[in-house]
Amino acid sequence: MTMPMYVSPEQLMKDRADYARKGISRGRAAVASTYADGVLLCAENPSNTLRKVGEIYDRIAFVGVGKYSEFDQLRIAGVRHADLKGYSFSRDDVDALWLANQYAQILGQYFTHEMKPLEIEMIVAEVGEESASDQLFHLLYDGTVMDTRGFMVIGGEADTIRGRMEEEWGQEMALSAAVSVSVSALAGPDRTLVPDDLEVAVLSRENGRRAFGRLEGGDLAGLLD
């Protein structure tokens, strides 16, 4: 009779984490940051159809990096959950914290119980009535949730990009300044990103009930100039 090989739990978790991290670091990065009118979501994404940034609800948006099919499934589940909650109770009762916690549970469950962990990292952002109540939640592949003020970076080379953001980013920036800081942080000193390489959206207090809006084509080019 063959005995199953013994693997220590520490080693098992480490292997899983390495696996997930490797998958995520292969993809391109995304940045979420607060600016004067709300939250800016900026991802490096040459595809015009396979989106990384999405609208979840009136004041809530989603950014995912890593394996597209995995984070897109969670994005859709988030839309369903938010619409159901808003329909059952009221639109005001839908919040980002609850969604982030649900995501964390799913990610944690995959990490410990499934064959392989989800190779994704996500941001759930909510724009508040004023800038002090804007919220950014960072979700890791193992279900860790972090709540950060200001900005956060996910995906490949996140540490380097975070360093560049720390140097340039400031509170209550205008949209054009926030876009150019995020885009140059994503690009680094040796590259220039053009609108076709980017997926940019905002959750803006100026947009009325549905705060989410994409910045594309000419509008984005204008902000990058």
Binding site: L74, R80, D83, L84, K85, S88, Q105
Partner: peptide
Amino acid sequence: MTLPLYTPDEDPGPSFLGLLAKLGLR
């Protein structure tokens, strides 16, 4: 209320009415 995740053969697609029907909320 847990996150509504579905396997591909159970997925209600982009229809909110389909989702409600699936959950028995019509």
